[in-house]
Design a protein around this nucleic acid. Structure first.
Length: 285
DNA sequence: AACGTTTTCAACCGCGCTGAC
DNA sequence: CGTCAGCGCGGTTGAAAACGT
């Protein structure tokens, strides 16, 4: 592949942008848009390469950019998404409106990574921090083949501002039935949440692995998860994420098999992740 | 106040992907 | 089908700011 000549060799400017350069770039893009980044600096009268202009616009000048410190919620989201996605900063940024991949990458390296390396200082800003240790494993089996894809996480995840739990009841049960397109029910799954564990300061969520192991979903299958909460108790992570669908214990939660297309698949798993607070290791798209 | 060290973050670099030709 | 231009991404750099002595 032929590389574009570097800025210096072309006599183009490098380094920090001046206010004048910013102004030129902003007014040019407001008038003409940025159809072709490579041609833009010449047309706008900037002694910069297109790449530099693009970066400056995307990371700093764009009107929808959110400036200022990251909120606790944003930081928690980054941590969770990083568990799922790894260093895919642009994918993480896509889920945080107004934040750029560069900014998120910087925050990760300067704050969040260190915080995770020092678990005792984690979320020190919040005195009532509680953690959920996810032991959940999701196994997806394809009925048409022997392939089994595993999604799992053993990384501790922190959740802030959890509401106080009613710990008087002994357990909450969540059950789920998998149904094929012709309506035939073929699987039942159970997940037990032990309240005495929730009472513990570490707020461990114990999930019966058989729940996940039994979760057989093929491409033609719709899975209906019926939350039969026998004590009217809510899962803290669900309550935390304030999802009206999951708030109602009588509600049926149904979803389709995730797309193998990256964008759609990502949306699916992100949605599941946001609803449940569980860490998910993504499949290959 | 002066100096050295560490942290932060904007900007750069180079690679890989994609679409046009 | 191969070549090329353009774009986007993730890793890295380095100047400036903040902090410690």
């Amino acid at each position: 592949m032929v590389r574009a000549p570097c800025c210096e060799k072309m006599g183009l400017k490098k380094g920090p942008w001046t206010q004048e350069e910013d102004q030129i770039l902003i007014s040019y893009i407001q008038k003409h848009g940025h159809g072709n980044w490579r041609a833009l600096p010449k047309q706008a009268g900037l002694l910069r390469c297109g790449k530099s202009c693009r970066l400056r616009w995307i990371n700093y000048l764009r009107p929808d950019i959110k400036r200022g410190n990251f909120t606790i919620e944003e930081e928690e989201t980054i941590i969770k998404l990083h568990e799922m996605l790894g260093n895919r900063w642009s994918a993480i940024a896509a889920k945080l409106s107004g934040r750029t991949d560069n900014e998120i990458k910087n925050v990760w390296h300067t704050h969040l990574k260190k915080r995770l390396n020092k678990p005792n200082q984690m979320n020190s800003s919040s005195s009532d921090t509680k953690r959920v240790s996810n032991k959940a494993k999701i196994k997806r089996s394809d009925s048409n083949s022997s392939t089994i894809t595993t999604f799992q996480s053993s990384e501790p995840t922190s959740l802030n501002n959890l509401p106080e739990m009613d710990t008087t009841s002994t357990s909450s049960e969540f059950s789920s039935a998998t149904t094929t397109n012709n309506g035939e029910s073929n699987k039942n799954m159970n997940m037990n949440i032990k309240s005495e564990e929730l009472e513990d300061s570490s707020l461990e969520t114990i999930i019966d692995e058989s729940f996940w192991l039994e979760a057989a979903m093929d491409d033609e299958t719709t899975t209906n998860m019926t939350i039969s909460n026998n004590s009217n108790e809510l899962l803290p992570s669900l309550q935390y994420y304030d999802d009206p669908l999951l708030f109602n214990s009588e509600e049926n939660l149904s979803f389709q098999e995730p797309s193998t297309n990256f964008d759609d698949g990502m949306d699916f798993w992100y949605d599941i992740f946001i609803r449940t607070g569980e860490s998910i290791e993504l499949p290959d798209f």
